[in-house]
Design a protein around this nucleic acid. Structure first.
Lengths: 201, 201
DNA sequence: GTCTATACCCCGATAGAC
DNA sequence: GTCTATCGGGGTATAGAC
């Protein structure tokens, strides 16, 4: 069923190096600010290889990179949410992880897909689709945590949306201010909000 | 003190047309996706005029456009916040205004500065400065409303940050989903959060 | 699958006439 | 202040050898 048969002892194959490099560049420079030549350079692949794997050009490549960023961010959410049973504390754990990653990258590595998402609203359907799926995925991860902790499904769903949206906004603010504080404040407020929906208070 | 002496009966002058066109284009296409030639075309000005008024080139022009968008967004916030004394209801009024504007523009006109802000993090100081001032301005507008409604100053300050950040994230989600719902959910959650800080409950 | 060369276009910025 | 012409470089994408 799987057509891929990579060599056993080598590192990531060409296709994967291209996707990874694209994901990182889109995160830091956005779609319009990133060139395919730059991608091929950073991925240590030739331009011919890029178009061999992604005949749809820059848009197809960006859509695949968005899916890569989707998984990356979901992994971070799962790590934070899995650190404790308490749903409110679990969310503040996420804000802490996000703040640390942001500081360590000198405030460069924010959400891996937001910049590209904004640049392509209403003008690149394949990318928009990948973006919409990523956000839905992240909301589902949070919703599952909140519902699993005893919150009614409808509340968990709405709260998950606001959790993701507030994390997005706070991460942007943290990048602009070059400070983890907006994320920490968001963590406290989200925890407080979630607690108002808890059965046992 | 003021060097400007515009003709009395004419419309906006060349400089202002350029700034307005730039602001709209940055809102919809971002910094890297917008060309100076396109700006001069839409502003009905020549390339020479653009560089006459903005010798610092694209960055200086973008910084000025950010300041324009700053005022625009602040005006919308003041309109929403001024619609009622109740601070929680005032915030939901803002989400309603944002949702209407978004829908009317076919989900194109989100926050006027976010895309450019993200694209230029850590790489264009004059733009970053204008962006930081805009966000501080918006937080101050919300903070004043909350403090004026009786919230302690420290609470009002922190809440204002989360209000702005959540509005940013919800607006992004609304553009992606092509739906006002994320903004409405954000409005309900923010109102609920603010209410937990109110003295009289 | 990988590589080079290249077609064709638009970019930001400048020069200098009017 | 306005306008046109142009410079040098980089953009996406393709062709075709190996």
């Amino acid at each position: 069923m799987n057509a891929e048969t990579p060599a056993p002892t080598t590192g990531p194959g060409t296709r994967e190096r291209i996707v990874r490099a694209t994901s990182r560049l889109l995160q830091r420079q956005g779609f319009e600010g990133t060139g395919i030549k730059q991608i091929s350079r950073e991925a240590q692949a030739t331009l011919g290889s890029v178009y061999h794997f992604f005949p749809g050009g820059k848009q197809e490549l960006a859509a695949e990179a968005i899916r890569h960023g989707d998984q990356e961010f979901a992994d971070l959410l799962r790590e934070g949410l899995g650190s404790t049973d308490d749903p409110a504390l679990a969310i503040t754990a996420c804000t802490r992880l996000l703040g640390e990653a942001l500081r360590e990258s000198d405030w460069q590595d924010g959400c891996p897909i937001t910049t590209t998402a904004l640049e392509t609203v209403g003008r690149a359907p394949v990318i928009e689709q990948a973006v919409a799926e990523a956000f839905a995925h992240w909301r589902a991860v949070v919703e599952e945590k909140l519902h699993g902790a005893g919150l009614p499904l409808a509340d968990a769903r709405d709260l998950a949306a606001t959790v993701i949206n507030t994390l997005e906004g706070a991460e942007l603010a943290a990048q602009i201010a070059r400070s983890e504080e907006p994320l920490h404040v968001a963590g406290r407020h989200l925890a407080r909000l979630v607690d108002t929906y808890r059965p046992g208070r």
